[in-house]
Amino acid sequence: MRLESVTKTYGKGEQVVTALRDVTLQVPRGSFTAVMGPSGSGKSTFLHCVAGLDQPTQGRVFLGDTQLTGLKEDDLTAIRRSRIGYVFQAYNLMSALSVEQNVTLVSRLADLPVDEAWLHEVLTRVGMTEYTRRRPAQLSGGQQQRVAIARALVTRPDALLADEPTGALDTRTSQEVLRLFRHIVEQLGQTVLMVTHDPFAASFADTVLFLADGRVAGQLYRPSPEQIAERMTHLGDW
C-alpha cells in the first residue's frame, strides 16, 4: 500500500475542512502497521482512502501496482471484495447466517469460488473450526471478531484493514485477537493496517504511525505501550 502526496478536504469555501494534508508513506507487504492519533487527526479518513472507500482530493493511492485513485465505483467494489479485507469494531456479521456462511459471504456476493481447503485453514488459524454451524448470537464477542477476521482473510487479500478491532472487547479477548493478527502476519505473510486508540494494542505492530492535524507526525518501530503513550501525550503540541 502506498500513498503519494494525499490530501483530502471536505466542504467548500469558508466551510472547508482538511482531513489529510500531503500524506506520503508506504506500508511494506507482510508488515503490521498501527495508526494512532488524537480525535480529528485524520485516522478514519486515512483508512477510508487506503480502502478505496473515499477518493483523495489530491494525490494518489496504490494497492500493490494498482492505482485506486480515479477508478470507477464498480472497479473499486471489485477490488475491495477480492483484494482488501476489512475488520470492524462492531463485527458486522449477518445474524441469520452461520459462521461458515458469514465467512464465505463476501466471496459469494462477488461470485468468486470458495477454496474449501483454504477456508478450512483460515477457520483453523482463527480457532473456529468447531463453531462453523453456530450463529453469531451463540458466540462470544471475541469469537465473533475471529469470524470477522476469517471473513477478511478468506479471499486472500493484499491487505487486511482493521478499524478499532478490539474496541468492543475485554482485555483478555483483545490480547487474543491481537496475537492472532501477529500470527497471520508472521505465519501467512499478511499485510495488516490497524487504526486504534489503545497504546497496548498498537504495541503488537511492527510500526506505529502517528497522525496529527491530518499530517504524518512520526513513527515508532516495535515500541512498548509506554513509549507509544508518551508520544501520544505530545501529539497535541505537534
Score class of each variant (00 low, 15 high):
residue 151 R to H: 06
residue 124 T to Y: 08
residue 151 R to Q: 11
residue 83 R to T: 08
residue 67 Q to Y: 03
residue 81 R to T: 09
residue 206 D to A: 02
residue 43 K to P: 02
residue 43 K to A: 07
residue 8 K to P: 00
residue 173 T to S: 13
residue 126 V to D: 02
residue 209 L to E: 00
residue 51 A to S: 13
residue 203 S to N: 05
residue 57 T to E: 02
residue 182 R to G: 06
residue 13 G to A: 11
residue 111 D to G: 04
residue 184 I to A: 03
residue 170 D to C: 09
residue 199 P to T: 08
residue 56 P to I: 03
residue 4 E to Q: 15
residue 194 M to W: 01
residue 30 G to M: 08
residue 191 T to S: 02
residue 235 L to S: 06
residue 60 R to W: 02
residue 169 L to W: 08
residue 21 R to C: 12
residue 70 G to A: 10
residue 109 L to M: 11
residue 5 S to W: 06
residue 123 L to K: 03
residue 201 A to I: 07
residue 48 H to M: 13
residue 88 F to Y: 13
residue 87 V to W: 06
residue 71 L to R: 12
residue 133 R to E: 14
residue 237 D to G: 09
residue 101 Q to M: 03
residue 133 R to H: 14
residue 219 Q to V: 06
residue 205 A to K: 02
residue 30 G to I: 07
residue 231 R to V: 09
residue 78 A to I: 01
residue 105 L to T: 00
residue 184 I to K: 00
residue 176 E to P: 01
residue 56 P to W: 01
residue 215 R to Y: 08
residue 19 A to K: 06
residue 166 T to V: 09
residue 43 K to S: 10
residue 109 L to I: 14
residue 40 G to W: 10
residue 53 L to S: 07
residue 177 V to C: 05
residue 88 F to W: 13
residue 223 P to S: 11
residue 112 L to I: 08
residue 86 Y to W: 14
residue 99 V to A: 01
residue 189 G to P: 00
residue 230 E to Q: 14
residue 46 F to I: 06
residue 174 S to A: 13
residue 99 V to Y: 01
residue 233 T to H: 09
residue 193 L to W: 00
residue 226 E to Q: 14
residue 111 D to K: 15
residue 201 A to N: 01
residue 52 G to L: 04
residue 215 R to I: 06
residue 88 F to P: 04
residue 156 R to K: 15
